[in-house]
Nucleic acid binder design. Structure first.
Lengths: 145, 145
DNA sequence: CTGAATTTGTAGCCATGGCTACATTTATTG
DNA sequence: CAATAAATGTAGCCATGGCTACAAATTCAG
């Protein structure tokens, strides 16, 4: 149905790509928000330097992105102070971590090495619908038995 | 290991995000090259209008991206003519389709509806390592039995 | 074969997320 | 407490991938 011999409906196909582009917009936000939450939980605060180090990016880039997150109401930050999550940001972090963990668990259960599972999950988690997430959970249970 | 109570090594974590960013760069190329290959196989040629329609994007955007693909040696195009793949482009298309199909098959086998499977696969396929791909194939076989 | 429709190209705008370089503020230490 | 170190902020650059608007070429009708 996908490709090869027959071409699917153009509008449907366009909708899929549209969806992927949409997901990309929230990916960065999810990753940052989740990391900020982790840092707050473990270190007691989230600072620009550590975000930069853990994201593998310059502090200038972090600043820019934190600015956007603040505009979008996910984060609160005052100059030269550490970064906090809004309620909305915290919700997003929780949800992101939930997805992440489901995907990682599934991959490991499927026989993927822990290292690869972590790496692939980082890319996959943002593109998994609730429906698929449920199926992965269920499958993880079955495999483990 | 991922998050919650303990923070993993910063360099490792950075490497993962680095990897995801890297994948993003090739995503667009893979999607276009695969679609171009499909169009050539089915319609005999790939034209800008149809790429635009199927990607859900303006023709100006397609033009810009095709320009990049040509700079990168994946595609050949002359003004006002249809678009062709280079050998490298064709290889990328074949590989992309292979991944796509493995992911879709797996998702369907896992109980995801065909529509959702197609949608999610579009986002997932670019972030799945060879190791994971092998595990998904194997798992698909087991589930089907 | 000419005129209209379609397709393609191009220019110029925008936001994002990279970067370096430099400025400023905060923290540390002698 | 002053001087240095570290962290943060800001400016300005780049490429990407969106867009609209307009220009040019090609195709299709009549």
């Amino acid at each position: 149905m996908t490709s090869s011999s027959e071409l699917e409906n153009a509008a449907l196909q366009a909708a899929k790509f549209e969806r992927v582009r949409e997901a990309h917009k929230t990916e960065v936000a999810e990753d940052y928000v989740e990391l900020i939450d982790d840092l707050i939980n473990v270190n007691g605060e989230a600072r620009v330097v550590e975000l930069a180090e853990r994201m593998g990016v310059s502090h200038a880039t972090v600043n820019k992105i934190v600015g956007r997150l603040q505009r979008e109401g996910l984060v609160v930050s005052r100059p030269y102070r550490s970064i906090f999550l809004t309620d909305e940001g915290r919700e997003m972090a929780v949800e992101a971590r939930r997805r992440h963990e489901i995907v990682v668990k599934f991959l490991k259960a499927a026989g993927v090495s822990p290292e690869t599972a972590e790496i692939d999950a980082e890319g996959i988690e943002h593109h998994v619908s609730d429906e698929t997430l449920d199926c992965l959970s269920a499958l993880t249970g079955k495999i483990e038995i």
